[in-house]
Design a protein around this nucleic acid. Sequence first.
DNA 1: GCCAGCATGTAAGGAGTTACATGATTAT
DNA 2: ATAATCATGTAACTCCTTACATGCTGGC
Lengths: 186, 186
Amino acid sequence: MSPTDRWLPNTSYALLGLLSLGGELSGYDLKRWADASIRFFYWSPVQSQIYGELRRLARLGLVTSRRVEQTTRPAKTLFSISPAGGEELRRWLEEAPVEPLVLKHPVALRLFFGQSARPERLRELLEQYAAENEATIAALAMASNALTRSNAPSGPGLVAAWGEQIYGAEREAIRRALEGLPPGPA
Amino acid sequence: MSPTDRWLPNTSYALLGLLSLGGELSGYDLKRWADASIRFFYWSPVQSQIYGELRRLARLGLVTSRRVEQTTRPAKTLFSISPAGGEELRRWLEEAPVEPLVLKHPVALRLFFGQSARPERLRELLEQYAAENEATIAALAMASNALTRSNAPSGPGLVAAWGEQIYGAEREAIRRALEGLPPGPA
DNA sequence: GCCAGCATGTAAGGAGTTACATGATTAT
DNA sequence: ATAATCATGTAACTCCTTACATGCTGGC
């Protein structure tokens, strides 16, 4: 990275970071790791974007790739973070400006305009969302187990706890919203 | 909306929804309302996008516009939701699939890769973020006062409480993360 | 005199998505 | 049989952002 074109998109650093934790990974692996970790606090890019990002990172010399032929499965390309990539990751952590938190809460958005909807519909939305949220909590708990087994309460462990805090707060907010909703069915 | 090209982007519905609450508003007004309300749980679009969206909504007949000449200030265009717009908003609330929650937490992302950063840097990031979060909580409290004064615990009130829950959880998560961080300066 | 607020836009570009395409293996 | 997993990509598109441009008023 020349100092003139400062920063890559955060997706790049997310991939670089996963490679810094994970050794040699394919694009496919990276998608799975992203789905099991950063997706809980920073969304998961789609496959096609991952492959594109990896090409860019390779072009910049931040990752190295190695082609692996397989007998049973089709060949794959494994990526590792390069020394330059490690430096860039550290540079980003040290110096990159931290963007504000982005929250896109489709249920809250609908609730906000709830005046225009039937109350039963709002209740339905909340109940649906409650189920999704519980599923997320369960998935996070599993991922958290896998992540914290090895590591000290460093990065992944800290963030897993953070996630539990957030989704727990959602659970509580849902409960209160359901209470606050007008009639109630039973 | 013909049934073939199902849905507009959520930004459109956000604007439609604000107009459904707010009467006649200019693009500029809408930006201010968005910053004071939906930005807390669903990000705020930039000015230029709002004007673009409004043109689309007008083209589709979902809003009506009225040009207002002013003696002292430059002329402005005020937008109102049309009956068709109201229907489209209700249709969206009733039938549109609800996307999953999107959380983009730049601090958690960095914390996750904290292995590659100095612990003091992580502490710095958390403390910065703590300050921002407190500012958000204060802003939300003010906005919440303005919103709940008139309305019953309907839409805006419910969502304000939700926001307080979320940002309160952030406060707690920050506190715990700081505790969990290795050495500590004092 | 200068900056903040009011008010509206255009142009260019990047990030990220969906849909599509391919093809083998393993589990149900 | 058929679905899911492994594995990689292209093309087309939309959303959204940044940067730029304009111009008036009111307060410091």
